[in-house]
């Protein structure tokens, strides 16, 4: 069993689940005001009870998923990478990156419509559309957002 097979089943999501659970429990533990029981009156649950209980449950369920993942012995493969899927994953990751860059540029420059226009160009190029279509799409979508949201609904971007 190679390393990729070891991590292809439910092991990674199980570890993430346990990590989220530990984070919730540790956070509640670190906040003095978030107690499990409210000290002011008997039997009243504190503000920390619910998130703490969720954290503990996530740890338990994560461990169960981890056991299942280990028992799969690498037989369960959610990725099953073919050359086409590798290319698709690359496109998808680039699209996610372009969304992140668009958001960052919008936040830093406050030039929403210019950023949107450039984003629309990049997305279409990533999805391998022709140049003419790409430019037309970018112009139409930017105009649509400008007239409907900015002018129509008075949204300030």
């Amino acid at each position: 069993m190679n390393n990729s097979k070891k991590t292809s089943g439910d092991i990674i999501p199980a570890i993430i689940t346990i990590a989220v659970g530990i984070f919730a429990v540790a956070y509640i533990h670190s906040q003095k005001k978030l107690t499990l029981l409210d000290a002011s009156s008997a039997g009243v649950l504190g503000a920390g009870f619910y998130p703490f209980a969720c954290g503990v449950l996530l740890i338990i369920l994560g461990v169960l998923l981890l056991i299942r993942g280990i028992r799969q012995h690498g037989t369960k493969d959610y990725f099953q990478m073919t050359p086409e899927k590798k290319q698709n994953l690359k496109t998808m990751l680039l699209l996610a990156l372009s969304v992140a860059l668009f958001l960052a540029a919008w936040r830093i420059t406050h030039q929403f419509f210019i950023c949107l226009f450039i984003y629309a160009l990049i997305v279409n190029l990533l999805l391998k559309r022709g140049w003419l279509f790409t430019i037309l799409f970018a112009v139409i979508i930017t105009a649509f957002v400008y007239f409907l949201f900015s002018k129509g609904f008075s949204v300030i971007f």
């Binding site: 629309a120 997305v123 279409n124 391998k128 559309r129 979508i141």
Partner: peptide, 9 residues
């Protein structure tokens, strides 16, 4: 792809 680009915006 046209649908994807429009939906993402």
């Amino acid at each position: 792809p046209t649908v994807w680009a429009a939906v993402s915006v």
